[in-house]
Simulated scan of single mutants.
Amino acid sequence: MTAPAPAPIALRPGITPVTTGDIMVLLDERAGTYWQINATGALVLRHLLDGATPEQAAVALARERPGALHAEADVADLLATLREKNLLAG
């Protein structure tokens, strides 16, 4: 039996990502608040929103930013923060 594919990462309704240069800002249209994500987090989040798994996003981070020595932990930390701030769907 094959394990089900993990659900894709998505922002909750009302959260709009805006890219400005290398960074990303997540706008909460309902609350009128925003969160700024640095270049590394933006790179990871773009991959996740495009359908990559966290593992694939970590590989992409390590490939695109050779100085990212803890890519898997960085992805996990970003996802934990997004969940904590209630920015993800589901």
Rank of each mutant, 00 (worst) to 15 (best):
D77E: 12
L49D: 04
I15Q: 08
T2P: 08
N38A: 02
R46E: 03
V44D: 05
H70Y: 15
L61Y: 14
A3D: 02
A76Q: 11
A39V: 05
A31C: 04
P17W: 13
L27E: 00
D22V: 04
I23K: 07
P17K: 07
A10W: 04
L82R: 12
L69N: 10
R12Q: 00
P66V: 03
G21N: 01
A73F: 07
L11M: 08
A31E: 10
A52N: 02
E29P: 03
L48M: 03
L82W: 06
A57N: 11
G90N: 15
V44G: 14
P13H: 13
A39Y: 11
L69V: 06
A5M: 15
L49Y: 13
L27A: 08
V44K: 09
P6H: 04
M1E: 02
G67F: 08
I37C: 04
P66M: 02
M24D: 02
H47K: 13
G41R: 15
T33Y: 12
A89H: 09
R46M: 01
A71T: 03
D77M: 07
R30Y: 14
Y34R: 06
A71W: 14
I9Q: 00
I15C: 00
A57C: 07
A68W: 13
L79Y: 10
T40M: 00
E64H: 06
L43P: 01
I23C: 06
L45T: 00
L49G: 03
D74C: 08
E29N: 00
D77Y: 14
L82F: 03
L11Y: 13
V59I: 14
M1Y: 01
G51Y: 09
G41F: 11
G51T: 09
A71L: 09
E55L: 11
A76V: 04
L45E: 02
L78Y: 14
L79R: 09
L87R: 01
P13C: 13
L27I: 09
L88F: 01
G51H: 13
P8V: 07
I15L: 04
Q56H: 08
A39D: 05
V25I: 12
D28R: 04
W35C: 07
M1G: 09
L11K: 00
D22C: 10
D50C: 01
G21I: 05
W35M: 10
I15D: 00
P54A: 05
R83L: 05
L27K: 06
L43T: 08
E72I: 03
R63E: 08
A73V: 11
P4V: 12
A71V: 14
P17H: 08
E72T: 02
T40I: 06
D50W: 14
L69I: 13
R63S: 06
P6W: 01
A76T: 12
L48C: 06
L26H: 02
T81D: 10
L88W: 07
E55W: 15
V44W: 06
T16S: 07
G32P: 04
R63F: 15
P17L: 15
I37Q: 03
A76R: 15
M24L: 06
P66F: 15
L82H: 08
E64T: 11
G67T: 11
P6Y: 05
W35H: 05
W35P: 00
D74S: 03
A68I: 07
L11C: 06
T2K: 04
A5R: 09
Q56I: 05
T33V: 08
L78H: 15
V18E: 01
V44M: 15
